[in-house]
């Protein structure tokens, strides 16, 4: 287990380093090191490299880190809550709700600094609607949660498309389209800080709520019999999931499948303790988005592939594999 964590940390570390060094303008590791360890406020005079690293690459790779871990934790919580390994922020409507809010906010001309807040509110609203519809006398009903989430996602997606068609401002629609396809370039340090703060709170909440999470894993009935306030615990966990997902969507748009893949790998490779799952899923998600973004920036010279599209290319087959694998287990 220690060895696995060591390897995971090494992977994340190298992904971070590669993201600093590689790109249209390659930077040698030594130069990158001296720039990153130098004072951030005063880059060496006349150094374009320092500006590029401090203003473009560092915020970008940190956004990748934060978004990856946020989506992974959100996915882990949603999978555990719904007791369904196929659940992720998309299936439960959270991401699409956040996406719709961002589309509406952008088209309404809302100042960009406020867009992340709108995304969070949208994710919260969508999840609240879904959770309220999925409520049953004995807590949240799993199948209803997923079914209502899928339906709400579909509604949000078509509303986003209508909004884009109808905006009458091609430039703005184009920007929005890129953002929705999943894009973490060009984020500022303040946007990064805001989403990182939300995600840190969600991550901490997930760790604190790991015992209730285990109790829920033996079933709602048994959890209640063991003294857990089931409805309260489910809402608290759902809120943590929305917080991490909403903050991720706000800063990165719709980046799919991280919330599906990372928790799955964590569950299979990092023991059975919920806390270990949460921490390792966060790191795996970070590594996944860092490597995917590296590929998005470097695979096609002079051109950047949309991150979300690239991840869907990996995630789609993974999802299908999961479904087939489950069928083999008799589901």
């Amino acid at each position: 287990m220690v060895l696995r964590y060591l390897i995971l940390v090494l992977v994340v570390g190298s992904a971070l380093a590669l993201n600093v060094c590689l790109g249209d303008v390659p930077v040698s590791p030594q130069a990158a090191w001296s720039i990153v360890t130098g004072p951030p406020g005063a880059p060496q005079a006349g150094s374009g490299l320092a500006t590029m690293i401090w203003q473009i690459r560092l915020p970008r790779l940190l956004v990748a880190f934060v978004v990856g871990s946020g989506l992974a934790v959100s996915g882990y919580l949603l999978q555990s809550l719904s007791r369904n390994p196929l659940a992720d922020p998309y299936l439960t409507g959270t991401s699409s709700g956040a996406g719709l809010a961002v589309a509406a906010a952008t088209l309404a001309g809302l100042d960009f600094a406020l867009v992340p807040l709108a995304a969070f509110a949208g994710g919260l609203a969508a999840s609240t609607v879904v959770a309220a519809m999925a409520r049953s006398p004995s807590g949240l009903s799993v199948s209803r949660l997923i079914l209502c989430g899928v339906a709400l996602s579909a509604i949000c997606s078509s509303l986003i498309t209508f909004a884009l068609l109808d905006s009458g401002d091609p430039a703005r629609s184009q920007g929005l389209f890129l953002w929705l396809a999943g894009n973490i370039g060009g984020r500022s340090w303040s946007e990064l800080a805001a989403s990182a703060a939300y995600i840190a709170v969600g991550l901490a909440a997930a760790l604190v709520l790991s015992k209730p999470l285990r109790l829920l894993s033996v079933g709602v009935q048994s959890a209640a019999a063991l003294g857990l306030d089931v409805v309260k615990a489910q809402w608290a966990l759902l809120f943590a999931a929305i917080l991490t997902c909403g903050a991720s969507v706000a800063v990165s748009g719709l980046v799919g499948f991280v919330g599906l893949i990372a928790p799955h790998v964590a569950r299979n490779l990092f023991g059975r303790d919920e806390r270990s799952h949460i921490v390792s899923a966060a790191l795996i998600g970070a590594a996944l988005v860092l490597l995917a973004d590296l590929a998005a920036r470097t695979l096609a010279a002079g051109q950047e592939l949309p991150l979300g599209t690239l991840l869907s290319l990996i995630g789609g087959p993974f999802f299908l594999w999961l479904v087939l694998h489950q069928r083999a287990e008799g589901l």
């Binding site: 555990s80 007791r83 285990r214 829920l216 894993s217 033996v218 079933g219 009935q221 048994s222 019999a225 063991l226 003294g227 059975r272």
Partner: peptide, 17 residues
């Protein structure tokens, strides 16, 4: 739950313990 325990007919563990 400190005073009353309940043994349901069946257990439905989501995660293997």
């Amino acid at each position: 739950a400190r005073k009353v325990s309940y043994v349901p007919q069946s257990l439905e563990p989501g995660q293997d313990l």
